[in-house]
Design a binder for these strands. Structure first.
Lengths: 218, 218
DNA sequence: CTATTTTTTTAGGTTTGTCTAAATTTATTT
DNA sequence: AAATAAATTTAGACAAACCTAAAAAAATAG
């Protein structure tokens, strides 16, 4: 795989985050995200087009080609693995990891990243709950969200537990809430934000404090 | 502390490695090390001089100012800590770590490096036996060398054991060879490269195989 | 459907870090 | 000490990635 500048990588990564199924990304949109000027975006789009990483038609916006998407996913993989490392191993706070990972993500050494992945025991989600693409760029679809943000009657699966303190894990154990369990919010109580949830066909009530530590994917 | 480009950092680091007590570094010398042209060196020296990081007189070579040395040491600290991490945690071979650390060293986030240092339990030497500067840029003088390379009758101190296998550690224990022990080579036998050493006033003979795993500093 | 506003592109300039080729300074020979 | 050789610097150019200001295209409004 060829090598890309940090700048090119930031463009690719940001286009990936901005593009949706049907809409192209616009020049102004990307300029704002990258804290740069529209003219710079046009310059770079010409370059990325010539490298066949974006489909770009003047005045018509742009989106990643399959090749561009592959590269974007590898950058996102690096970013999220480093975030996980910083939080899990170096004990950074979850809100500090992003800024540091912005730099680490541009070191493109496949062996480094795959060994890091292995060392971290192949984590599936970063500290923000975003899924980590695997070596082949495969990524879990659907963002991981907090259980307290899950809409009523939507089927979801427990995929991550934040702040893994002794007491929290013990509590989850008592309630039989485990990673991979199927879960559904049946009712939200406004008074104390507690939730009535259905867990493997059993109904139970959990506090907002507990819900805030449980992340799900649908 | 200000921020420097990867390029400036490479110049500073390389000057540090090239400069000796009495001799200035020359333009051609540095150009060769950096795989660049002499004209580029002159350009950069003007810039580093204006930032008060090197003392430079046209045609007379250059050396680091105290400030330049401080920065060089912080880059070397980052480099060696990452090397240690790669070898110790990610299980890279010792001959692979340098190339990867060349990239990692340019991420200048003090908190990152200090937390990494802590995570690694404040290692004193990198996988090549080179000393790692501490947060304040203090560095052990005298390079760590292999016991089998120590000249006869030179007083040295055991500072590192390579390949810490069960059987090796056990063997060292029997011979009472520990980190910090004072050691001196009294005789080298050409036949099998075994060594007669003086260890805390006791004389003993050790095999070349064992000596190769012991590193000392003088 | 023409006029105005917004978006995007073009044209030309800047900085960083590199280069080549020519000029200059220093070192070495004889 | 003059001639030659080697090292270094200067001058001018280039690519990357950004910028501003002006021009052009597309979208929106009356």
């Amino acid at each position: 795989m060829l090598n890309f500048s940090a700048s090119e990588e930031n463009y690719l990564k940001t286009i990936y985050h901005l593009q949706t199924k049907d809409d192209n990304v616009t020049t102004n949109e990307l300029a704002e995200k990258l804290h740069t000027r529209p003219a710079s975006i046009t310059d770079m789009m010409k370059k990325l087009k010539s490298r066949k990483l974006v489909n770009y038609q003047p005045y018509r916006g742009f989106r990643l080609t399959p090749e561009g998407k592959k590269i974007a996913l590898s950058i996102i993989r690096r970013h999220r693995l480093w975030e996980y490392f910083l939080a899990e191993k170096l004990k950074f706070n979850w809100d500090e990891v992003h800024a540091v990972a912005e730099h680490l993500e541009h070191i493109s050494n496949k062996k480094l990243i795959d060994k890091l992945d292995e060392y971290l025991a192949f984590p599936k989600f970063d500290p923000h709950g975003d899924p980590i693409p695997d070596t082949n760029g495969r990524i879990e679809t659907g963002k991981q969200i907090n259980l307290s943000d899950l809409s009523i009657n939507k089927l979801a699966k427990v995929c991550f537990i934040a702040n893994q303190s002794e007491s929290l894990l013990e509590h989850l154990n008592e309630k039989k809430i485990t990673i991979g369990a199927t879960i559904m919010v049946k009712k939200k109580y406004n008074y104390d934000d507690s939730l009535e949830i259905k867990l493997d066909s059993k109904l139970l009530t959990i506090s907002d404090q507990l819900a805030k530590n449980i992340f799900v994917k649908y």
